[in-house]
Write a protein that binds this DNA or RNA. Structure first.
Lengths: 200, 200
DNA sequence: ACTAAATTACACTAACAAGTTTACTTTTAA
DNA sequence: TTAAAAGTAAACTTGTTAGTGTAATTTAGT
């Protein structure tokens, strides 16, 4: 009486893909399960067999998305490279999501939902991040290497990312188009300022 | 054949109040016109007599809200006061919205809608702000007073506000509760850093 | 008090969407 | 090959909501 399990990942993935595309394009509220099933070339019943509700499906889409986006931020400390070029990598990792049109679309939907459902945001971040503190670790290493000077890495990391988000992430999420030239110049100024404060 | 016009502002305002409260509490999508009319103690027909659609009503609510919130940022330059205390006022003006429970609720809804409808965001900001550049003006004055040093006020202002938003505004919008103690300490560090870079 | 403007009650349309049921067909692992 | 697992199609239930039409009622300015 053993159950035979068959591989259902193909349909499941095509549902996830379709859902991602639809949510990206129309937002959560304006995407219907019928749309998704049609786009996935699956029957609605199959969609519901894989995901018990629209909400569950949405969460699954986000989980996959944030997992993908999370690794990008793991930048190793390199004592042979300039601090500014390494910090630039942290900035780039944070803003790359907003440069890919698909990612940007999904990030927008995610943010709009998170804003209205903070508990969803928290659960998601808990499930994915388990606190990615890559910059914090990097900062500590630079400090041990006597190249940076500060007391609390956590605070410094928070301040650094706050500025990056405020300059490059949120404006883009809200529809601003920042010319590459301006990105470059702002990035330089921002990192220079940061190093003026914390570099030995 | 002159038309006698009667004062309808009371009903109109009570509709706006009710709409604001409902949008705040349930978000745009999950607020119905029936709810609003009931809360306003007006018939649905009257609501539609004042506002041709749900969208128009929402925009009217936001317009009123942002107009109120806009004046707060007009901080005059004072050459007898310390730069840090004046900058602190700019920070406070930016984050006060997130400290009032009602304002925070409406700001959340506004942001979630803006994110998904960037053109709405732009229209709204055009209609209200006409670019409030109070910090830019303040910076110029401090520069002319030989207390600050920079080349482009606009860039500096952008960087300053980016950090403030990233530290205090967006986290709160996303549900974070920052203890007052931490706000104070972050604010101090942030302003100190800023002055380290730009103060003469 | 008169009268037009404002408001109301409420039924109505038209559309949409989440999730279910059922009877059926296709796929695949052993 | 075959039987169970997976998937399908399409109608269906249940509920919601934006917006309208209309006839009746209330309100306020002259």
């Amino acid at each position: 009486m053993t159950k035979i399990k068959r591989d259902t990942s193909r349909k499941k993935n095509s549902i996830l893909d379709a859902a991602q595309q639809a949510f990206m394009e129309y937002g959560y509220e304006n995407t219907s399960m019928d749309q998704i099933s049609e786009l996935a070339e699956a029957s609605k019943r199959t969609v519901y067999n894989h995901f018990p509700s629209k909400d569950d499906l949405f969460q699954a889409v986000l989980e996959r998305f944030f997992k993908e986006a999370s690794d990008l931020k793991n930048i190793p400390y390199d004592n042979n490279q300039s601090l500014s070029s390494q910090l630039e990598k942290f900035v780039d990792a944070k803003i790359i999501v907003s440069k890919n049109k698909e990612w940007l679309g999904l990030m927008r939907v995610a943010m709009s939902v998170f804003i209205l459902n903070p508990q969803v945001a928290e659960e998601m971040m808990d499930r994915i991040h388990k606190m990615d503190n890559y910059l914090g670790i990097w900062l500590e290493k630079a400090k041990n290497d006597n190249r940076l000077n500060f007391s609390q890495a956590e605070e410094v990391s928070e301040i650094f990312y706050a500025g990056v988000s405020g300059l490059f992430f949120w404006p883009v999420i809200l529809g601003a188009k920042i010319p590459e030239k301006k990105v470059k110049s702002l990035k330089k100024t921002y990192i220079d300022n940061f190093l003026k404060v914390y570099q030995n």
